[in-house]
Design a binder for these strands. Sequence first.
DNA 1: CCGGATCCTCTGAGATACTG
DNA 2: CAGTATCTCAGAGGATCCGG
Lengths: 128, 128
Amino acid sequence: MYIKKTTPTLNCGLDLVGEVLYGKWKIRILWFIHNGNVRPSELQRKIPDVTRRVLNVQLKELEDHELVTKTIYPVLPPKVEYRLTEFGKTLIPLIQSIGLWGDEHQERLRRVILKTNGKLDLDDVPVS
Amino acid sequence: MYIKKTTPTLNCGLDLVGEVLYGKWKIRILWFIHNGNVRPSELQRKIPDVTRRVLNVQLKELEDHELVTKTIYPVLPPKVEYRLTEFGKTLIPLIQSIGLWGDEHQERLRRVILKTNGKLDLDDVPVS
DNA sequence: CCGGATCCTCTGAGATACTG
DNA sequence: CAGTATCTCAGAGGATCCGG
């Protein structure tokens, strides 16, 4: 899940949040970082579908938006760590609530999503 | 602000929420509908930047996902009303929390967003 | 282990015009 | 007032390769 940039006019709080959370993997990244320092390679293992390039791009944006900080250790092999800023941490409860809501309504959500996507499991559909 | 479809594998609640909230205007639509019945023309006045086509597409998806219901009155001129389902209503507190967080951190958010976008309001910048 | 640069794909969403 | 059909396009994000 991710939130995407949209509004030309940034009036309400909802718009502003959209700006900083925009990006396909932002929310997941924040979630995985939320308890401790994380290295890029760990992140990639946790989120296997994202490529390194995109991961870096989105981390950079999160950094620019002051939600995470990046620490570079001048060692060999290179070591980099990300962690949430205090500001970033204030976002975690929200992400958690959203995740909880999703968990609570998991069955219904799966049902309506499947219904809509038309990705019915053809395996289960009788030919009749 | 909007949440976009993403995850091929729908494992956690976060992913599921992403599926149903995916769409550039979904969250705003839900927000505007959240206290009462709303007609398409009203929605468009509230969200002037969206086109009728896209509005219809997203409303249809919200309907398919059982977050809103559509009522068609067989009268002339045509009259249509949308309202939240009970399921849809359970989502409102989350949207509200996000909006509140955005409002609370409004100034900081504007700052970092402007900094990043580089879209400084040239009007307000003294020539000096 | 880490990041950056290039190239390419794909699809959501805008514009427009037409019907009931 | 409400809905649908085409056409088009930007740009987010994926694939790959290379360099420190």
